[in-house]
């Protein structure tokens, strides 16, 4: 049976951002709703000054924030040696708003003023590279775009992929999550949610380790004996289980 533990999570929503259920979060975790995202500041995300942060597009800042906060929650923010940690990010709209901004710079000068700085962020996996170099992540880093079939359970495919990656020995840990600037993504709202998954055999001291994931023989995702049918289920369960741990 496929299994893994969630050893930390980070999130950015219209109400604020945070790592796990820490009291220092700008708001309680539990809901992603439509609205305008707050600007993500460097100091919220990275402990040290970072000249590149200000140059990033909004999508990359959002995704990097979710990953950084998840790593913080899992106690993996600081590092000495590079680590075999992978990142899987699901997104529907990705960097499309950056694409529009970039192509405007092309049209404005018939190509003469095309911005190389913006172009670098017109790949949706660029923010994974930003996270990899800041946190020493040498695992498999990729963005996944689901086919569209209207099935809510399909959003959980990326979590299952992360669990498989761990079970099959591809990565020691995987940061898996969702990131969209619009409300067409799996969160149905602008925001980011990233979780750090590790093998269920790893001892974990912090409270979030109570969250165990498994895929049962019928192929259903389960957590602590509850069936998780959708991403919304997982978000609710994440909030409930963690607060009772």
């Amino acid at each position: 049976m496929l299994s893994a533990d969630i050893c930390g999570f980070g999130w950015v929503s219209v109400d604020g951002l945070g790592a796990g259920l820490s009291a220092t979060n700008s708001c309680p975790f539990g809901e992603f709703r439509r609205g305008e995202l707050p600007p993500v500041q460097r100091k919220d995300v990275l402990s040290r000054p970072d000249r590149s942060f200000g140059r990033m597009d909004q999508f990359s800042r959002l995704g990097l924030a979710g990953i950084a906060l998840a790593l913080r929650d899992a106690g993996l923010e600081t590092w000495q040696d590079k680590r075999n940690i992978g990142v899987l990010a699901a997104t529907v709209t990705g960097c499309m708003y950056t694409d529009v901004d970039y192509f405007k710079t092309v049209l404005e000068g018939q190509g003469l003023f095309a911005s190389p700085q913006l172009f670098a962020y017109t790949l949706p996996n660029t923010f994974l590279g930003e996270a990899a170099l800041r946190f020493g992540l040498t695992g498999n880093c990729q963005v996944l775009n689901s086919g569209i079939n209207g099935d809510e359970s399909h959003a959980l495919a990326v979590v299952r992929t992360a669990m498989e990656s761990i079970a099959w020995g591809e990565n020691e840990k995987v940061i898996v999550g969702y990131c969209d600037l619009g409300d067409q993504g799996a969160l149905h709202a602008p925001g980011a949610l990233f979780m750090v998954l590790q093998p269920s055999t790893v001892a974990q001291a912090d409270s979030v380790a109570a969250l165990k994931l498994a895929v049962d023989e019928q192929g259903r995702l389960r957590s602590n004996d509850r069936t998780i049918c959708s991403l919304q289920d997982l978000i609710k369960h994440l909030a409930c289980t963690s607060s009772s741990a």
Partner: peptide
């Protein structure tokens, strides 16, 4: 941004074309 630019439309289109049950997933890693 037109919806057809979303990369998830590519596996959906291919799945339909090949008459597959799986709606598929797109890998994006440069």
């Amino acid at each position: 941004v037109p919806e057809q630019v979303q990369l998830g439309t590519v596996p959906s289109w291919v799945a339909h074309k090949l008459r597959l049950q799986d709606c598929g997933i797109n890998v994006n890693a440069a």
